[in-house]
Design a binder for these strands. Structure first.
Length: 487
RNA sequence: GCGGGAGUAGCUCAAUUGGUAGAGCGACAGCCUUCCAAGCUGUAGGUUGCGGGUUCGAGACCCGUCUCCCGCUCCA
């Protein structure tokens, strides 16, 4: 039943200006999406919340905006050039897809378990040699020679081995023949590591300290599915926290708890979130957990918290042959700091917020059952904070409403509407998640009071115009969420 | 990439066995003046995803192709 919700959310997001498929005039481009007028407003609010959480609530975290393009050597040093290129093969009978190296390694393990250690060693040696030569045909032959079978189909009916590089390559330089290959970054973190020394020196930071960054990253996914959950171009919100070696566990736990709190503060129900430890670690990680949200298609990762040790800084120090060291006055010694990162998929959070907010209720009114759809977005994140309506389009009500709009527009994202019936206007705002509607009627002209209508309950109350500024400041401010982050 | 499902107006869907592409909603303009999408009048919007074939005639039948959704794999 829950899985049926995703198509509704996708079409709602498109119909009401949150998220459009990219290049739809040309039939679309798989796994790329554009943010529409309300989508980008929601996204900016979310990014501001994260940014303020990191840089404003922590005096020892500063921001950064590094470039998407970096020296190609960065990705060799980081390990992405090697480990981000997966060699895949499909079994034609079971239709299952496997990574070639894992198939062969598993087979070698089985051989070892069966006491055939020499054969296992030889197999692994062949694998390494073929991988280094990038010999795809040889790998296919090896699969057949070693009689490696599909665990499901139990056959060796393999397709050709294909290489899938997860990084997008492009060329830098005007003359292509002389140009170097350069990659669109597959993660924003490396830009932070490259600026570690700059920030340490110019921000007068003492370890432990952190650098936060929001930016685009690009991955050439094999299969990109589930709407904006897995996109080829996506936005990361990453914070790299530099620490004394040996304090990794302590800070890993610290950030895991703090990030967990953040989702509570956002109002995501605890029972729809869970922390999942990684059983298989990425090439850079010492310890890793995911924070998962229960999407309509199952529990999926929205944020990763990783203890990366000194892997990245050390690799860059080696590859660049530069000294990457921090002198710690407390310990009176120099070292390469270790890193704990928190890495959020911004677009995944947007999808989480949409899933959480999308509400369909049926209610019986005068014996007639009516369906009501609205977005229960947190007021601080809603794209539009309040809509201002004259009850009718005459008797000076539009002018009065416009006056109120002008008075409040400097502080809040507002919308003004005078067309059609009041009910239609309320509904339109419900559909985009506007928490409050303010209606000017004839009484307003006499006593400067208005009707304040609440989105979720549809309740109305009579309030003074003079109270609106204070009311909105209080309710739509990020402050309420930030205060709940328990920093 | 493989398997399954689907593409007709902005959205939801119609269109006898192959016979002139329609409706509701929405949008826009005007009227009405009303606190929860429901009144009246009018307007715009389409090479039926795209290309080819069969046919006197294709939205429908055949072939190809593209895209989207679901599953397998990976990650943020």
């Amino acid at each position: 039943m829950q899985t049926l919700m995703l198509p509704s959310i996708i079409s709602h997001a498109k119909e009401y200006g949150f998220i459009f498929p990219s290049s739809e005039m040309y039939d679309g481009l798989q796994a790329v999406y554009d943010y529409g007028q309300y989508g980008i407003a929601l996204k900016r609010n979310l990014q501001n919340l994260w940014w303020q959480t990191m840089t404003q609530l922590h005096s020892h975290i500063v921001g950064l905006d590094s470039a998407i393009l970096m020296h190609p050597a960065v990705w060799k040093a980081s390990g992405h050039v090697d480990s981000f290129a997966d060699l895949m093969v499909d079994n034609k009978d079971s239709k299952k897809r496997y990574r070639v190296d894992m198939l062969i390694e598993n087979h070698a393990e089985a051989l070892t378990a069966a006491g055939q250690e020499d054969e296992a060693k030889q197999l692994l040696a062949q694998l390494q040699s073929l991988l280094q030569k990038d010999d795809l045909v040889g790998l296919h032959t090896l699969l057949l020679e070693a009689a490696i079978t599909c665990p499901v189909a139990k056959t060796s009916h393999w397709t050709d081995v294909r290489k899938l590089n997860l990084m997008f390559a492009t060329k830098v330089g005007a003359i292509e023949s002389e140009a170097d290959t350069i990659y669109l970054r597959p993660e924003t973190a490396q830009g932070i590591y490259l600026n570690f020394l700059h920030v340490a020196h110019t921000a007068r930071m003492k370890v432990p300290f952190g650098i936060a960054q929001i930016g685009k990253a690009f991955r050439n996914e094999i299969v990109a599915r589930q709407f904006i959950f897995r996109m080829r171009e996506f936005e990361q919100m990453e914070m790299q926290f530099f620490i004394q070696p040996g304090t990794d566990k302590q800070w890993f736990d610290y950030w895991q708890n703090l990030r967990w709190q953040w989702y509570q503060a956002l109002g995501i129900p605890k029972e729809k979130l869970k922390i999942k430890p990684h059983d298989q670690l990425a090439h850079y990680a010492q310890a890793a957990v995911d924070i998962e949200y229960q999407f309509p298609f199952g529990y999926k990762e929205v944020e990763g918290i990783h203890a990366r040790g000194d892997f990245d800084l050390k690799r860059h120090a080696q590859a660049s042959r530069k000294k990457v060291q921090y002198f710690d006055p407390e310990l009176n010694q120099s070292y390469i700091p270790h890193v704990v990162e928190t890495s959020v998929g911004c677009d995944r959070l947007i999808l989480m917020l949409l899933c959480e907010a999308f509400t369909q209720e049926s209610q019986v009114e005068n014996g007639v059952s009516k369906e009501r759809t609205y977005l229960k977005l947190h007021p601080a994140l809603a794209p539009i904070k309040a809509a201002i309506f004259p009850l009718v389009k005459k008797d000076g009500l539009p002018a009065k409403a416009q006056q109120l709009f002008d008075a409040l527009k400097y502080d809040f994202a507002l919308t003004y509407e005078e067309n059609q019936s009041i009910g239609k206007r309320y509904t339109r705002q419900d559909l985009i998640g506007t928490p409050y509607c303010i209606t000017i009627d004839h009484q307003t002209l006499e006593d400067d009071t208005v009707t304040l209508r609440h989105r979720d309950s549809m309740a109305q109350e009579r309030v003074a115009i003079t109270s609106l500024q204070g009311f909105l400041t209080e309710t739509v401010s990020l402050k309420r969420i930030l205060q709940d982050c328990h920093v």
